[in-house]
Structures are given as structure tokens and as C-alpha cells.
Design a protein around this nucleic acid. Structure first.
Lengths: 262, 262
DNA sequence: CTCCTTTAGATATCTAGACGAGTGGGTGAG
DNA sequence: CTCACCCACTCGTCTAGATATCTAAAGGAG
């Protein structure tokens, strides 16, 4: 009797104007946020909650679906509903593309991840010439046909980011940038070797819910948004030499920028 | 017969391994994305879809709840389910706190919004001394007791952002910063007048689903994430003089940063 | 010891229906 | 003509099942 699975929960008031399934979701949410259920812990089963609250199973499931939508819990078929653990986040500093880092040799992603003690992987590499969207070609200020480099990044086996770089053909065609492995320091190092000294980057950040395709590629849990970052690299002559379109699992990232005050 | 409300939809395959309610959601999502239902347009009613697909009403409702979770549609009790219009976004440039803007007089938010032809409002202003979280006081590098300035921003009547500024008491107490109206140029102008010349800002960006309280404050539709931005302002002596914690409706914002390459 | 089957318990999906409540149009009384 | 009321249509909530599928553990066959 001492610690029934539902012992940490109260009752619902069927006469309240708040729907019963919302009341149940409220109680579970609060219990989770107060730590009465800890990360990874199994919540009471549907049947137990049916018993505890005296409601039908659909009502309990409605409550769970709210919490799943909020990304607080995830259901595992045949096992139960669990409090979703918060994954460790990756910090992206605004100096991550500074020349001094590039000169080390390895790519920013691999260096960073190693330093953080994670196991990094790069995946699904695809390099090809293709026609881009109007938006990308406007940003590049070049023709619709470009070189596209697509890849997925994983940390400890978990996909965290999916990125596509677009480069003008007159710059990239026939260079190492058009190879699957762009060499030490990545494509920015190659661009500088080719005489395109980088001056600055513009980054545009949005957050939104993922498309079904993005859910699949990044193996996103329900209720996890994505950060959509579009970076344009400019050389010292003011020409856009690369546009990188990145979709990140929002629960895996914190972006960090430093702005001057003047 | 020519344009039944369901005429733009196909059929479902009950023997498929894809659940029927997902198939229906897929069809509706695709129809919306292809523009076969335009912004603000009413989708077929639950009863019409029950009829069209030959499924039960709960199944149709499950489909709708998926699309609502994705933020694609919203239901209005007694009226129907509608394609959610995409609101116009507000761009935040990385130079928005540059001194030259501050010297104009009006606050950044009001100037910007006026320029964009929107009607800006500031709301729910609250200024008080309070104990902060461990996190904020660590960022400020000061005692737990601080001055907190809380306010909500609206564009054309729609709440888009909720922000709290925290300032050390030894700087802010007794100054105009502790007044509801901080005067021309905002609190950054006052800080500089008080001898804290600003050097730079650090901004940390996360994206996540909102808490129920945030949904209420920002009147967020289901499926809209928030951008959580924490800005720390440093003076030329390296002291943190303000921490601003901002929660923004992600569908109302694009953040924009410029990074140097060296 | 390994592999397969069984079984209990869990979630996933679906059906059929009931009642509640908001919206908006039509209609009849005045 | 106006307005109160009714009614059809809409989504919101809840019940009470049925069937399917997945997981994990136990037990038996080889």
C-alpha cells in the first residue's frame, strides 16, 4: 500500500469546467516537473490510471497525448509511458567559424564533439550539382544551378543536425569542395585557398515544428521543435560564396552569440 | 457534385501498415501544403470526412489532432477546422542594440514596429525587487536580490514576446531604471548615463515547446514553439550589468546575426 | 545451453454512440 | 421590420468496448 504507482497523484473533479483529461494531464505534468517522477521513470500504466481516476481508457490516453505533444513523455509500445530524459545540449558559439579554429585542421563539429567527450559521426554525405530554390539563389546572388553538399551529423549515434551547403559552380566545380571529403579545415579552408578570403557570415535563425521528413531524418520525439539556421558566407569583396541551410534538433542545441554594443 | 468539400482528397487503405488516422492526416497535410486548401480556409467537417473515408468520427478527430499538433490547422468550436494563416514575422537584427539606435530616443521595439507599419504595444509592465533563480544570479555575478522589469510586447494586438530584465540593485535602485517608464532610449541609455558604458552583449538561444503559462501569456496556437533568448549585457569593465530573459513566439520572429570570420 | 512458444501486461488503433456547447441562419410573433 | 427563439451543424468530451501488436519473462523442446 505504501507506494502504489499512482500514489503521487490526486483526484479529478468531473464537475469542473476544466476537461477531465486536461486535469489528469495537469497532475502528471506537475508531478513530472516537481520531480515526483524522475527522468526516464515509467508513469503509471493506462490501466492503473483508469483505476485510479475512475475514467475510461480513452480519457487517460487523451491526457498522455497532451503530454506527448508537449514533449514531456514518450510512449513505448508494450512497455509503458516514460518521462523523457533531457538530452545533453551542444553549444554553438558565435566564434565557431573563426579563422584560428579553421587552421587546426579538423572540422569544427568533430573537434568540438571530441572535446565534449561525445562520439561524433557524419552521415549521408551527398555532393552534387543541382538547381536550387529561388531563395537560395537570391542569397547566393548567382545562377540557379549550384553545387550542393548535404550531410547529417550525429552525436553518440543520435542525429542532431542536417545541413546542406550551396556554392556557386564557378567557384566550386572541379575543386576539392566538389569531393565528398573537402580536406582539413573543411570547405571554408578550401575557399580561402582559392582566393576567397572570408570576411563575415550572416546567420538567420528561425524555430518551428519539424516536417514529417525532418522528424524521420533527425529521429525527433514528438514535441521537439527544430532550429532552422541559414548562414551566408561573404568574402572580402562582398560576394556571397556559400549558403548553408541547417536544421537542428532544438533539444540538442544552445546557440550563443556575442554582439558589440557600439 | 463539381466541388464537394472532400473532392480534393483521396482514399485510405485500411490494410496498410500506416494507421488510417495518419493516412488521413497525411492527405490533409499534403492538400494544405499544395495550396488546395488556402490560408484561413475551412477544412471539410468531421462528419463530411467520416462520410468520405468511411471511418468513425474519433479516427477523423485523431487526424485533426495531429495537424493541430503540427500547428497547421486550428479548430473553432461550432464553426469548423481552419488552415492556420502564417503571421508576418518580425526580424531582429544583431545590431538592434547598437548605440546609434539608442541615441534616437524611442525604444527599439516601438521604432521598428512603426517602421514596419504595425501597431506596437507594451503591456503588463511590472517593476519590483525580487529574489532570482540561481541561474540568473550566476550570470549577473551578483547577489540573489535584484531589480526585475517584466513586460509583454504586442504587435497589432497580438502578443509576440514576454521579457524580464534583471539588474543588480546597487546599480538600479533609486534610479529611473526602477521606474515603470525608463525614459528615452530605454534602460541601456540609463545604464550608460550612470557610467556603465556598454561593451558587448552575450545572447544564448534555445528553442522549445512552451509551458502552459507561456501558451496563455503569448496566446500561442498549438504547435508553435518559443524561442528562448537570454541576453547578458557587459560594461567596459567586464561587469554584467543586466540579464534579459525573453520568450518569443517562434512564428513571429526571425533572428539575424552577423559574425566576423577572423 | 539455445531456440521457440506461451502468456501476461502494456500500448496502438478503431468503432459506435452519447451528451454538451458554440455558431449562425431561418422563422414566426409582435 | 425587428427580434427572440428554434434548429441544424459544428467541434468538445467521455464511455465502453473490440482487435492488433509489441515487450519481457517464463517454460519447454531440442
Amino acid at each position: 500500500m505504501a507506494s502504489l504507482p499512482t500514489g503521487r497523484l490526486g483526484e479529478v473533479d468531473p464537475t469542473s469546467d476544466r476537461a477531465v483529461f486536461r486535469q489528469i494531464a495537469d497532475q502528471l505534468r506537475e508531478a513530472i516537473e516537481r520531480g515526483r517522477f524522475s527522468e526516464g521513470e515509467k508513469l503509471p500504466s493506462e490501466a492503473e490510471l483508469v483505476e485510479h481516476y475512475g475514467v475510461s481508457r480513452m480519457t487517460v490516453r487523451n491526457s498522455f497525448s497532451i503530454l506527448q505533444g508537449e514533449g514531456l513523455v514518450h510512449a513505448e509500445h508494450g512497455k509503458g509511458v516514460f518521462v523523457r530524459p533531457r538530452p545533453p545540449v551542444r553549444r554553438l558559439a558565435s566564434d565557431r567559424f573563426a579563422r584560428r579554429h579553421r587552421e587546426q585542421g579538423k572540422s569544427a563539429f568533430l573537434v568540438e564533439a571530441d572535446a565534449a567527450g561525445s562520439h561524433p559521426q557524419v552521415d549521408g554525405l551527398e555532393v552534387k550539382e543541382e538547381k536550387t530554390s529561388q531563395d537560395i539563389s537570391t542569397r547566393l546572388g548567382s545562377a540557379r544551378k549550384v553545387l550542393a553538399r548535404r550531410r547529417r551529423y550525429l552525436l553518440d549515434g543520435r542525429p542532431v543536425e542536417f545541413a546542406t551547403s550551396y556554392l556557386p559552380l564557378d567557384i566550386a566545380r572541379g575543386t576539392q569542395i566538389a569531393e565528398p571529403n573537402p580536406g582539413p579545415g573543411g570547405i571554408y579552408a578550401r575557399l580561402e585557398e582559392l582566393g576567397h578570403r572570408l570576411d563575415h557570415f550572416d546567420e538567420e535563425i528561425r524555430a518551428r515544428m519539424p516536417s514529417p521528413a525532418e522528424v524521420k531524418t533527425l529521429r525527433l520525439a514528438p514535441g521537439v521543435p527544430v532550429i532552422h539556421l541559414i548562414r551566408t558566407a561573404y568574402d572580402t569583396e562582398g560576394r556571397a560564396v556559400e549558403v548553408c541551410d541547417t536544421v537542428m534538433a532544438a533539444d540538442a542545441y544552445v546557440l550563443s552569440y556575442q554582439l558589440p554594443a557600439n
